[in-house]
Structures are given as C-alpha cells and as structure tokens.
Nucleic acid binder design. Structure first.
Lengths: 241, 241
DNA sequence: CGAACAATTGACTTTAGTCAAAGAAAGTGG
DNA sequence: CCACTTTCTTTGACTAAAGTCAATTGTTCG
C-alpha cells in the first residue's frame, strides 16, 4: 500500500496499463490545487463556466435546487471523484456544489482535457471510465429513489458508499467515516430529514447498520446486501483493458 | 429543412463547426444497421458486451429490473439518442433495453469509437456533448423523482420529451407522437400504472396536457412550464464551440 | 450564556400504492 | 370475418408509506 498516492491515482490504478507518461500527465492535471472550506455553496446552475474539478481531499456533493426551495442531491463526491465534469461540454452547468468538509480540489478546464485526449489517449480512456462509473452511480440512485422503499434505499446507499470509499483506501466497506448530516442524507435519498431519522433508527434497531457520530458501521453486511439486493457490478472496479 | 438527414446528424448540427470529414465519419459510424421489432427486451445487465448503438428510428427505453420484479426505466430513447454508451467503457453493462416500437439501430463498438477520437476529434467532442446531454437528462429525472410530486413530475417529463423530440424534427414541442404505454410511463416516473392513469386524468381535466392514443398535446404549455418549473437549460441545445 | 443547528420523537395528514373489477383495444388462429 | 386471448386503460374502495407540524433535547461555537 502506497499511501502517498492521491485518490484518483488509486482509483485509476484499477485500470491496468497506464504507463509512466499517463501517470505523469495525471499528476500534471492535478497541479492547479486549491482549498475550499466546509459548507461553501458553489452555485453553478445556469453559469457558463467550463470548469471541472478533481476532488483530492474531503467530501462534497452536487445538487439541484427546485423553485420551492427543496434540494435534491445528485451524488456525494468523495476523494478521487470528479466535480462538474459535464460542464466542460455543456454550455451551461446544470447543477451546483456544496462542500461537506474542508476540501482540496484540482481545477480542470476544457483545454487541458483536450490535451489529455491528444497526448495520452490511454489516460483519457481511463478518465472516461471513471466518468462512466460516476454516471452508473447516478443511474443506480435513480433506480433506488424510483423503486426502493426508504429502508432498503438507505441501506443500499450506505453499502454503495462503503464500496466507493474502499476503492480509494478509506475504510473497509463495513465501517467508514461519514461526515454527512442527516439532512444531506435525506436530500440525497429523496426523503425528508425527519423520515431518514426514523429509518436510521429502524436500521439500528434491526442491527443492520449504525449511522452515528460521523461513522457508519455495518453490523450485518450480508443481511444488508440481501435486503437491498445490492450488487456491485455497476460500480465495477476492474474494467478490462 | 432537409428531411434526408438522420436524427443524430440533426442533433449534432446544433454543434457548430463539424466539417465534411466529421460528417463523413458520422455517416460511416452508422453503417452497421439493423432492425429490431417492437417489444423486444435486450437484456444486458451483467453482460460483458462492449457494444452500444445509435437509435436511428423508433423508440426504446433503458431500464433496470429489481429483484422483486419491479422495473425502473432510466430514460426513454428517441431517434438520435445513444443506447448503452456506458457499456463501451464499463466492464459489465449495467442495464437492459426494451424496444417500444420497431427500431433501426446502428451498432458501435469500442474500436470504432476510439478511431473517431483519433481521426476526427471534433466529432468526438460533439458525440461527447450529446452524451453529456443524455446524462443531464438522467440527472433531471433523478431530481424529478426525488423531489417533485406525481403531477408536476409527469407534466415535466412530457415537456422535456417534447423538447427532445423537437430537436430531431419530431413534433413542435407542444404536440408530438408518443407511442409509450401508461405502464412504461409509470416505470419511467417511479410510480404505479394505476397512479399515472389518475395523474393523466388530472392533467387532462386541468386542461394542461392530453396524453391519449399515442399522442401528447399540450393545451397550456405556459402553465405546464410554470407549474413544473421547467427550464430547458439542462438540455441546452447550442453548445458554444 | 445564548444562538444556531442537528437529531429525535409524537400526533396527524397527504400522497401514492394495493386490491379488485371491468371496459376497450389490439393481435391471433381458425 | 369472427371468437378469443392478451394487454392496456379506467375507476372505486381501502391501506401503507412518507410528509407535515410541533415540540424537545443535544451540540457546537462565538
């Protein structure tokens, strides 16, 4: 285990065959770093910024706000994830961000990405793989919100998060730090904060998983996976070359 | 209006600056055509097929089935849309398809796509733009299912569909052919067929939109857009170069 | 200490789902 | 062309899930 690697490098290493040039370019891509404090809302909806980020450290989420003030979180981003990749290509960004903890990001712009495509196509494919995986995650959330009940949905989400974190070296899938509030969790899962609170209690009382004090601890992952029908194919870690 | 153009060409033409070589490549990409009859389920979940399609004619949908037998439709595909683009990069395809009408598709494989990236990068960017737009649509569905009530959600979906079809020359946004059954609509919107039936009645009685006999006709688009908070930025048609 | 926010719980309401039943439309084999 | 099945649509009556309102307890932080 080489803890000096950044999260995205870790993640892409599931992708075999990246050579030294790819790795160098990947480092270079993450050169323009900056820090953002927790709780900062980066409102991009409707903005014409062709900028995306790599989240290097910390947690964030992407969301859309509706006119009635309610908020739907599209996905939680953890280290190694992209922020706002779509805005590189779409004219106007379609969503905003919120930093959940203090974060460190690396800025990407369209020009740099095109350069990656030109000069290190292998890395480009790896990045597109990561983007596809993010997209598959969003699709799974859609399915979850559309067709799973609150109880299964919550357990499923926590299982998924554990797997995603494990891939970048945080936690072991069955226990991991999770600095998100119940109201963020509620907005991610399409329910109210009050309801998620009750659901979390049920999960705790059913001895499946405990969400408390910034930690998630599964007591019975097998049953959790069973109840929710969780399978990790959609996150699948090792794309063949 | 040049009706001889295929739907994808029409759609990408919103993307300025494609040259003759790009156009030729775009035609070439659609060379491997085949027909599939209506009602065919193409089950890909868990399959390792690195194949995607361009939908040239007809309607289809992508969906995931849960263990309890229920189904969540991820998106409806209309002419000019991609089918299964993610499976070009992910190891295992994460969803399946259903043809809603008879369709004509053109097969894509990873190798051909990589060739596009190498030889006509301009077209590659245009295709990635289209893919980003599809993704933005999925995100909007997520938001809709998570945070809009059934009435607004349904109206929103029908508005969106109208805009998408207009872009490829089908209908005018306020009236268009729509060959999908109520049960498909229900599974796309995360509700039951019975409930969508009631909602469609309400929309009809409120003189907002009529969904009947394979046609959608808005009677009051302004009010519909107003009620649902519909804006088409997320579909935005003309990306700047 | 008090302010602001997060978590918790109870009582009640609303929304959407379930069950049951029929009518309508569309395709099939004779 | 007609009986016959199958699928789609529609409606009513009832149930279950999740939201709303209201209030309380912690917690963090200046």
């Amino acid at each position: 285990m080489n803890d000096t690697r950044d999260a995205l490098t870790r993640k892409l290493q599931a992708f075999k065959g990246l050579g030294p040039e790819d790795m160098a370019m990947l480092q270079d891509l993450q050169r323009l770093r900056s820090q953002i404090p927790a709780g900062k809302e980066v409102v991009y909806e409707g903005q014409h910024s062709h900028t995306a980020y790599i989240l290097r450290q910390g947690w964030a989420c992407s969301y859309k706000r509706l006119r009635d003030g309610s908020r739907q979180i599209i996905d939680i981003q953890v280290p190694g994830d992209f922020l706002g990749l779509r805005s590189l290509l779409l004219r106007a960004s379609d969503h905003s961000f919120l930093t959940i903890t203090d974060v460190e990001v690396a800025r990407l712009d369209r020009h740099r990405m095109l350069e990656v495509f030109r000069r290190t196509p292998r890395l480009a494919v790896a990045l597109m793989w990561a983007a596809s995986r993010d997209e598959a995650t969003v699709v799974e959330h859609l399915v979850s919100i559309g067709r799973r009940g609150a109880f299964e949905r919550t357990a499923h989400f926590l299982l998924e998060l554990g797997e995603r974190l494990k891939l970048v070296g945080i936690g072991n899938g069955s226990a991991y730090p999770c600095p998100i509030s119940q109201s963020i969790l509620a907005d991610a899962l399409g329910m109210t904060a009050i309801h998620i609170n009750r659901v979390l209690r049920q999960l705790r009382e059913a001895r499946i998983v405990v969400f408390r004090d910034g930690m998630v601890e599964f007591q019975d992952m097998k049953r959790a996976a069973d109840i929710t029908g969780f399978e990790l194919t959609y996150l699948d870690q090792s794309p063949e070359s």
